[in-house]
Amino acid sequence: MKNKVAYMGVFLALALILSYVESLIPFYFGIPGVKLGLANLIVVIMLYAVGAKEAFAISMLRILLSGFLFGNLFSILYSFAGGILSFLVMWLVKRTGKFHVMSVSICGGITHNIGQILIASVIVETYSIFYYIPVLLIAGLITGMLIGVIAGEVSGRLRPEWFH
């Protein structure tokens, strides 16, 4: 139990560092809202190597803390929408046991963007935002694939019993 608390702290720190690294990279693909989603790497790895409960907890804490550190209230709101929706979808897709990590991560990347668009359309009260959907779908697919490949490699080398 003591071990587990320490490991959760390490994972949270790692996720926060990845958020920070991401905020440093001047990633700009010409479309607002397209990000690499490095912090999602930790969530996918934890989903496979530790457990769903722990992955969800770290994901939510990461969003809250990185929002206060590097973002603002709005970015927290958008991140929560994307984070919760993408976690639910990844968890369900993984639970079917029929898909590879890469597919799970791709579904996560895409639904993360869809979640953000949905909350944005509610906050800004406009439907024109839905015109970004194709771009964000493709972006989610590509970033999800990259994250999925890395997460697959890493989580295959970790053992769940280390963290419990």
Binding site: H100, M102, S103, I106, I133, P134, L137, I138, L141, G156
Partner: peptide, 25 residues
């Protein structure tokens, strides 16, 4: 855990690409 992406994964990705293409069009 599955080691390699299988046929289902390929179908899923192709399906998602189609959705992207249709919405982009």
């Amino acid at each position: 855990m599955k080691r390699r992406p299988g046929k289902r994964d390929l179908l899923l990705i192709i399906g998602l690409l189609l959705v992207c293409a249709v919405s982009a069009a």
